[in-house]
Design a binder for these strands. Structure first.
Lengths: 121, 121, 121, 121
DNA sequence: GTGGTCTAGACCACG
DNA sequence: GTGGTCTAGACCACG
């Protein structure tokens, strides 16, 4: 578990957790079959409530990224590299739609956005 | 006042208001010196609370986009086209930093981001 | 709110709540735009925790049956009779798949199932 | 022992075991007098806990499908084809009552249920 | 006043 | 020991 919780962020903790674990799974850092730490242990380590961890894990399961076995633990799901890429792009595109809406409201063209991105990526 | 409030959006109303007016000022739709409607009138028109409008106007003032003259009203600030562009890019870059952090957490390269943007912009 | 919670049932409370409200919406008992009682009030009435109600409402929202407006309340979503029928059948079919699996494991044919259903429906 | 355990299913393992053996007995696959494997051997074969197998066997005994002879083993009970059919229908009807309650809560008529069943059986 | 989030602690089923 | 559910109570943002 290599996760950082920011209490100053305006994002809820469970969402921070979900995003970071998602990224680690879809980025290949966590392999298929890997067993996440027990939710109670994760809660202790991260100094958050069990329920908060549970909420993050539930969202991971809804997205098909992990697979919970009661009494055993939570395991990273099995998928092919292609599937992984597809799911990753799906998640990123969903976020990107909102980002684009913001840029467009300021009248930015695609070229202007790309130019700005290039400066700070 | 040409503003659309979405109650289904997860963005708070005051932020929707702020973003749209910001975009209109920085996009040249609202000219320097233009007098925004009184908050009570705006609240009535948009069917939102006076507090909500006030919050949005305050944020506009903090960003230097309007200036309030007590007893007179709220006026769009004066700035040169260059200044306008600078402020716009400043606001967009601030948002973009967060967006990029998200993309990077998934291991996306700049080229991948540009490719995805091109698909849906 | 016309809901019955069974504490003897093996179904979790939040699921009982979700199923009953779903059925009421998709059965036309609760009209589009209807405002559900505040979650805290519902919790009091039903003698359950606020979080339990919240969990049920969240699932309703995920399924597109209600629409939450922070600070206002939770409203039954708008959909045409056709849409309502489609969503209803979708939910029922999902449940039915599991039921059928059970019947088939006992070697029952469709005709036998229909015969048994006819006796006790 | 021809049994498949799914760890992804939300059904507890002992119930999966119970259902599958029940179905095999009532479907005639396992004949009267057949001796089920010792629980320790079954547990090994299926990679599940001894407790889990015991729980399933107990449930089978409660339903009169097997009888345990201490020191000898667990044997499939003797019953006539008629009895077998009666027990099977009893078990199926018990399950079906719950299913019907669900369908009815959505306002489905018997004809609608039959129509949906026909589509996916 | 409304929903959103979080906590600490509890009891349960499964294995 | 693992996850699943639930509670009572708290503080916050939005309006």
């Amino acid at each position: 578990m290599n996760v950082t919780i920011s209490s100053t962020s305006d994002k809820p903790i469970y969402q921070q957790l979900h995003e970071q674990i998602s990224a680690q799974i879809l980025g290949g850092e966590l392999e298929s079959g890997y067993c996440l730490p027990p939710i109670r242990q994760a809660a202790l380590e991260l100094h958050v409530s069990v329920i908060t961890v549970k909420k993050a894990w539930e969202e991971l399961e809804r997205n098909g990224l992990i697979h919970t076995v009661t009494g055993k633990g939570c395991f990273v799901a099995e998928f092919s590299p292609d599937e992984m890429l597809r799911i990753r792009n799906e998640m990123v595109l969903k976020q990107m739609e909102g980002d684009i809406q913001y840029y467009k409201s300021f009248g930015l063209t695609l070229d202007e956005v790309i130019a700005l991105l290039g400066k700070i990526y």
